[in-house]
Design a binder for these strands. Sequence first.
DNA 1: AAATTTAGTGTGTTCGAGCACATTTTTATG
DNA 2: CATAAAAATGTGCTCGAACACACTAAATTT
Lengths: 346, 346
Amino acid sequence: MDKKLTIKDIAQLAGVSKGTVDRVLHKRGKVSQKALESINAVLEQIDYEPNLIARNLKNNKIYSICVVLPNPESDSYWLPCIKGIEQAKKEFKAFNLSINAHYFDPENTESFIAVNESVLNSSPDAVLLAPLFSKEALDAVEKYSAQNILVNTFNNQLESDEIRNFVGQDLYRSGRVAAKLIDSIAQKGQIAIIHFDEKFKNAVHMQEKEKGFRNYFLQEENSDYEVTTLKLKRKNYETKLEDFLKENPKLTGIFITTSKAYQIAEIIDKTKNNTIALIGYDLLDKNISFLNQGTIDFLINQNPKQQVYLGLSFLVDHFIFGKEINHSALLPIDIVNSENASYYME
Amino acid sequence: MDKKLTIKDIAQLAGVSKGTVDRVLHKRGKVSQKALESINAVLEQIDYEPNLIARNLKNNKIYSICVVLPNPESDSYWLPCIKGIEQAKKEFKAFNLSINAHYFDPENTESFIAVNESVLNSSPDAVLLAPLFSKEALDAVEKYSAQNILVNTFNNQLESDEIRNFVGQDLYRSGRVAAKLIDSIAQKGQIAIIHFDEKFKNAVHMQEKEKGFRNYFLQEENSDYEVTTLKLKRKNYETKLEDFLKENPKLTGIFITTSKAYQIAEIIDKTKNNTIALIGYDLLDKNISFLNQGTIDFLINQNPKQQVYLGLSFLVDHFIFGKEINHSALLPIDIVNSENASYYME
DNA sequence: AAATTTAGTGTGTTCGAGCACATTTTTATG
DNA sequence: CATAAAAATGTGCTCGAACACACTAAATTT
């Protein structure tokens, strides 16, 4: 009664052979009206689900997937991605998969182009790409698609019809989450948004977060916060920030839009000013350390590990189990304090 | 080069037949020393991974799994579990699985016993159990084990050697998370822990949370909070709470250890006292509504949906892919405010 | 030495889907 | 009506692991 029905069963019920059923299921034609009708009648009554295990047994191709991402040595934000890849490898070991990571220098567009070129030459079945450089990424995506290589992206959104999937976060929304947190913990007064990054390519990221952050306070009716934006680069950031703090003694909160909150925290720490609320991104060791010590109040987890893992498992689902790929998977925006941090760090 | 090696390949390399390789791999004996050695030599050189797909094709048994949990109509905390079951059913549709939910009345021990009895009689392959009533649950687990039925638990921890797995949260830790949140947002002063639940069986839950909560403040050196515990039951809780609020005008924060935060919020709302920080559990609609409106500051997500889903996917991994079951999976303790809530609610 | 047991080995079938190919049936054409 | 062409249908093999069973060769018993 509970038994799963097979093609053979359907054939028997419809009074035809399994070949004919197969042709109907795959719309390969060459089926008489009569046979079609009797098979469809059976199919309507039962809920046929092809046995994916059997389907895949035959198809014993090794799928090769390349993950293209920045070198974690250049930016430790990407470090958890390695774990994500390892986890996927382990999890899907039993299937015919070959997953390889390819790193590019996040400071160097040429390197991004070169790595994509070399990946292209290795003709993988799919590429999971962190499209840091929009223009060059679009180029790469086009080339991959031309070679019928499936492209999925993670971390950075990229508008392209060629992209089958995106795994990441709603940055605007994460800005709003940060704003709500500031609203919860900071005294009324002045709030600073700090963009601390060399890299122009992160501009979109930072802008979206700022937009969400500001928008939250615009919607609040009688918000007593004044929001200022400050852009810092590696050069002279210490003195610049110190000056800013002196000029704005009423500062009650800072929202750092990148993973460099620890660098801000170091300076705040020196000034012994414990009344400033600090919100940043990403669970880097240095950030966690300031979180535990209390200088940073909350971190927002962008979950790079999960992004890669999910991106890969979508590809596996597609190749191995023939599932459709959703166009977009937005990960939760995890609020992290010193007490729940460990759960988000592997 | 990259090709996965099969039993046939190993047989060829070792100069024997696939049957002999099979006997070695499964330690079925009846193999000569000579053959054993040559096969082991090959196995040492290569990294053989049996093709789980092929293995499962043969083994076309329908695995039946029963989920035993409280009726969501009696306590809407359990409502998301249905979604978790549905998701698992959908996700694993292609495998020979039969997943069925069985509800018991969370107020009624007899009902728990009866449901487990009936599940036992249906002889499933595995049971995923919410062991609300410890003593009766241990009884049930023993009976299941005696019939060789695999038992996994979720939501409530239960000490038993018979249990292969637990999916849930570290309640002590979640109490600490709540304390840290209170510490972040509430003014110094008096804090109340409110246990609001009829059900004695939740006592352990609530106690663990209280322990974690209090422990956080004990560890803090110069904590200026005074923590009081208040137990409320459905009967007269309004007047009781109102009296408590009058008696403690310096109250700055409340930690509700159950999912009934909305009932506290209703009363706080009436008193127009916006300075009291409120932290509760679980994303019930009513809680979310107070979260959006600002009366509740944070909710901690116990993620019942994910608990069931994970519990089921462990069983599937075990039955279908022969994976070992980890003994315990502690889910992250998600901090939820009005801005990131949607990501945790389906 | 023949008969029988037993250890060791190999062969063949199964699972369900998919597809190539063979076979049968129908339709079209001289 | 015969024959060719086209359409429809069925058969049989593959994938890899698992296991039943058949078989051979060596060891033991009669």
